[in-house]
Design a protein around this nucleic acid. Structure first.
Lengths: 209, 209
DNA sequence: ACATTTCGAAAATCTCGATTACCAATGTAG
DNA sequence: CTACATTGGTAATCGAGATTTTCGAAATGT
C-alpha cells in the first residue's frame, strides 16, 4: 500500500510536484509573453522549466489550461494587493480610497511587464473558456469600482446611481492604457499612467451628468 | 499573347476576382466570429464562400492576411462614418461634436455585432503584425479624440493640456464597453452604451484635475 | 463543333506540434 | 547491495490543417 511517496533530496512528493508545477508556470509565463501564446510550444515550455513533457501532462490538461491558471493568477495578485491597500484607508474619504485602489492595482500589474501582456493581449480571444473567465473578472472589478462609487455617493461626493456600466468602461480604460504601456518601447513611467487613470476615474464618478 | 481575360456571364476577369475576394472576406468574417479565429479553418471559409482553396491562395497569403484586412475594414468603416458625421456639425460646440463623433462610432461598429467581436476579441494577440496594426489605430483614434478636446479647450470648455493619454484611455473604455456588449446575451440596447461613453468622455475632457 | 480559359472539387503533399510510450540515470529504502 | 520509485530525455505515434497539384466540367469565342 504503500508509499505516499518517497523522499528525495529531503523533499517529499508533494513539494517536488509543487516545485515542478511552479517551474512550468514560470516558464509558460515567459514563453507566452515573448513567443506569444499561439506560437509557443509545450516542448519549449518544458525545456525552459527543466521538466519533461510527461510531467507537463501530469500537471496540466494542455496549453490552454496553463493560460487559464496564469490569467487567474494575475488577477488574483492584483486583487490581493488592492484589498490590502484598501484595508489601510478604511476611514478615509472616497477620493483617497479610489486613488489608493488604483495605485495598488497599477503597481501590482506593472511590477512585471509580462503580466499586462499576458492578461490584456495573449489571453484575449483564445477560447470561450478564457473569454468567460475574462468576463467574470471584468464584472468583479467593475463591481469593485461601483462599490467605491456608491461609497462616495453616501458621502455626497457623487450622485447616487448605478455605476456598473461606468465600472466596465473604467476597467476598459485601465486595460487599454496598460496594453499600450506594455507595448511601449521603452515603456512610459508608470506614474503617468496611474495619474491619468486616477484622474479619469474620479471625474467619471463625481460627474453630475 | 493573350488575353487580358475572358468575359463570363457578362462579367470580366477583374469583377469576378473582386467578387470572389469579397465572398471570401464575408465568409471569413462569419467564421472568425462564430468559430473563432484560431479554430477556424481555411477550408471552411472557402466552402462558405463557394470558392476553392486554390482561389483562396490566389487572393490571400493565409488566414492572418485575411484578418489583417478585416481588422482594417472595421476601423475604416467606423472612421468614414465618424468623419461624415463630424462634417455635419462643423460649426457646433465641442460637446455636441464629441457626442456626434461617438454616436457615429458606436452606430457604425454595433450595426453588426460581428464587427466588435472581430476587432476587440478575435484580432487581439494574434501576431506582432496585428498588434502593430492595432496600435496604429488606437493612436489614430486617440489623436482624433485629442483633437476634439483641443477644440473644446479653444472655446474655453476644457483645460489646455495634452490629451493623448486621455485619448488612449477613452479608446480603451469604448473597447471595453463594446467587448462586453458583444458578449452580452441578449445584448444591451446600444443607446445605453453610447450614453455612458458620451458622458464619460465629456467628463474626462472637461474635468479640471 | 472544337480549342481554350476558368475555377470548383478533391486528392496528394508537407509540416508541425501534441500526446504517448519507453529507456536509463539518480537517489532511496532496508 | 538490491529492488524500486521517480523523472528527465528521446523518439515513435498521430492527427490536423495548410499548401500545392491535378482533373474535369462549365462557359466562351471562333
Amino acid at each position: 500500500m504503500a508509499s505516499s511517496g518517497r523522499t528525495y533530496r529531503g523533499v517529499d512528493v508533494a513539494s517536488r510536484r509543487a516545485h515542478r508545477r511552479a517551474a512550468l508556470l514560470d516558464a509558460a509565463l515567459e514563453e507566452f509573453t515573448t513567443t506569444g501564446y499561439r506560437a509557443s510550444r509545450i516542448a519549449d515550455i518544458c525545456t525552459r522549466a527543466r521538466v519533461s513533457t510527461r510531467t507537463f501532462y501530469e500537471e496540466f490538461e494542455g496549453k490552454q489550461d496553463v493560460l487559464l491558471v496564469l490569467h487567474d493568477r494575475v488577477n488574483d495578485l492584483a486583487l490581493s494587493h488592492v484589498r490590502h491597500a484598501l484595508g489601510t484607508v478604511l476611514e478615509t474619504d472616497a477620493v483617497t480610497r479610489i486613488g489608493t485602489l488604483l495605485d495598488a492595482f497599477v503597481a501590482a500589474v506593472t511590477a512585471d511587464p509580462r503580466l499586462p501582456r499576458l492578461a490584456y493581449v495573449e489571453a484575449v480571444g483564445v477560447s470561450p473558456a478564457l473569454e468567460a473567465q475574462h468576463q467574470r473578472w471584468v464584472t468583479r472589478w467593475a463591481e469593485f469600482i461601483a462599490a467605491e462609487a456608491a461609497r462616495a455617493a453616501e458621502h455626497g461626493l457623487a450622485p447616487r446611481r448605478d455605476y456598473r456600466l461606468t465600472g466596465i468602461a473604467l476597467v476598459g480604460a485601465v486595460t487599454g492604457l496598460l496594453r499600450a504601456w506594455q507595448a511601449g518601447n521603452p515603456p512610459e513611467p508608470v506614474a503617468v499612467i496611474a495619474d491619468e487613470i486616477k484622474s479619469l476615474m474620479s471625474a467619471a464618478i463625481t460627474r453630475q451628468a
